[in-house]
Amino acid sequence: MAQNALGSDTAPKTARGASTRERLLRAAESVFAEHGYSGTRIADIVHAAGVSHGNFYRHFQNKDDVFVAVLEPLLDELVEPFVRALAEGSDVLDSMVRVNTDFFATYSRHRRLFPLLREAAAVNPDFTAMWLRMRDRFIGRIGAWLEEIGAAPPGAAAEPQLLALALGAMTEQLAYIQIGPSGTGPSGVTDERPRRPGTPGVVDAL
């Protein structure tokens, strides 16, 4: 489970409590998706879940707390590919392809949550910090991999971290255009990528 400064991590002590919390989470995700982060009220969530306000506050402190809980599967899935790649010590290019492929798959599974997180980050400093931590982790790791494979030799016009920032922006925008609004999953995404002989470049890394 993702650990966030915003969210509480108190687990329900009974099966009934766990069931109520799950109902609230399902309702919250649906209401957030319908009304957006700013437009969602706790009253909307408890109405959709069919529980009382008192039950809501037994499990969550406020709207931000339940929003973090809704985001937890997404946050966990974004971190896991990097952890797995580093643990396996795979070839750098293979790791980059797998991480980016996993990102598209994660975006597809959580296509309703990504726009919500961006909306929340635009209006709430705590979620801004969360978004920047996510982005910086991705950019930092990709930049290190690009440097390792020599995608930007010393003296090149673009340094590895700048290339990683550009690639991250391209990847996110591609996911938004191809997956987000259309509601369709990623198609034609495969782990097979052609590689040119010699020093790999940025295109090969993707």
Rank of each mutant, 00 (worst) to 15 (best):
L75N: 00
D76T: 12
V79K: 10
E88G: 01
G89K: 01
V92F: 02
V92G: 01
S95T: 00
M96V: 11
V97G: 00
V99F: 01
F104W: 09
T106H: 08
S108T: 14
R112A: 15
L113K: 13
F114S: 04
L117P: 02
E119I: 07
A121N: 04
A121Q: 02
V123K: 01
V123P: 00
D126Y: 06
F127K: 10
F127Y: 15
F127A: 12
W131E: 09
L132D: 10
R135K: 14
R135A: 14
I139M: 10
G140A: 03
G140K: 02
G140Q: 03
R141L: 08
I142K: 02
I142R: 07
G143Y: 02
W145E: 01
W145M: 13
E148K: 14
A151F: 07
A151W: 06
A151I: 14
A152G: 06
A157R: 14
A157S: 13
P160A: 10
L163N: 05
A164W: 01
A164P: 11
A164L: 05
A166S: 13
G168A: 09
T171P: 04
E172F: 07
Q178R: 14
I179R: 06
G180I: 02
P181L: 15
S182R: 15
T184R: 15
T184A: 15
G185R: 04
